[in-house]
Design a protein around this nucleic acid. Structure first.
Lengths: 138, 138
DNA sequence: CGGTATCCTAAGCGATACTG
DNA sequence: CAGTATCGCTTAGGATACCG
């Protein structure tokens, strides 16, 4: 019955698409920033909190926990009082730096083109005003 | 006053981190899937809808519009009735494929390590039960 | 110091119905 | 065929306070 004119079922699924699966690891609001902060070696919790602008304790903890669960980040506790907690990339996490850097390189090269495309798009399909603030969500 | 013991301001910002800025382009739920669907050439709206499992018209439209606004996807309308709309990657969009493919390659190689890390994490910090369903959000 | 707990809002997303 | 419009849910995320 499915011989000649087979109904084609969807070929692309969330769980089957490699693009989507990596992005799940690194695409919430703060994950990329934390990885960036750990690129040059281990950093303490409080330091991360100060280095990453705008992050709250809640979100920092949430983000490093998720990274730890996925095996990308290691958490090292020195059990003194008060406690010292160092975070660092695991070898697995470091192996992800290379593909991530090529992404970053892409935006460095093409950022202006993206910006230009946005301005052009917003002008073409004019957002029903003539003196809008073009900066999106800054 | 900020000579010797300068208070160090945050070094890492959402708008300053290249990692974060690229991810903004490609990291919502369906964007990666749409790019994947367009990797081999232009595809019609209805085809995308059928090829990508679970996507709704609303989200497909939303996703391709965002991609178009960012200059990654081109929208070509053939004004007949009923209309035909083809979507394809722009040169800018195609240039993004290379770094994205290296990300995808990474997950292909390291997926099992991530999965193993998760199982290990969940067992170590046991989620207060002994027969949990380990599959997260499938 | 390095976190949790709680509450609350805003955004993302899905379902359904309607349209040129 | 290729979309909008509307509604409502569910989650991500922010603010604040408390804890070992």
């Amino acid at each position: 019955m499915t011989t000649s004119e087979e109904k084609r079922q969807p070929e692309i699924t969330l769980t089957g698409c490699g693009y989507h699966r990596v992005l799940e690891l690194i695409s919430d609001k703060w994950t990329a920033l934390v990885i960036y902060a750990l690129e040059n070696g281990s950093v303490r919790y409080g330091e991360l909190l100060r280095k990453i602008e705008g992050i709250s304790k809640k979100m920092l903890t949430h983000t490093v926990r998720k990274l730890e669960r996925d095996g990308l980040v290691h958490r090292h506790i020195t059990p003194i009082v008060p406690p010292t907690v160092e975070y660092s990339l695991t070898p697995l996490g470091e192996s992800l730096l290379e593909p991530m850097r090529s992404l970053r390189q892409w935006i460095r090269v093409h950022d202006s083109q993206v910006m230009a495309a946005r301005v052009n798009f917003d002008q073409t399909y004019n957002k029903d005003n003539d003196s809008p603030n073009l900066e999106d969500h800054l």
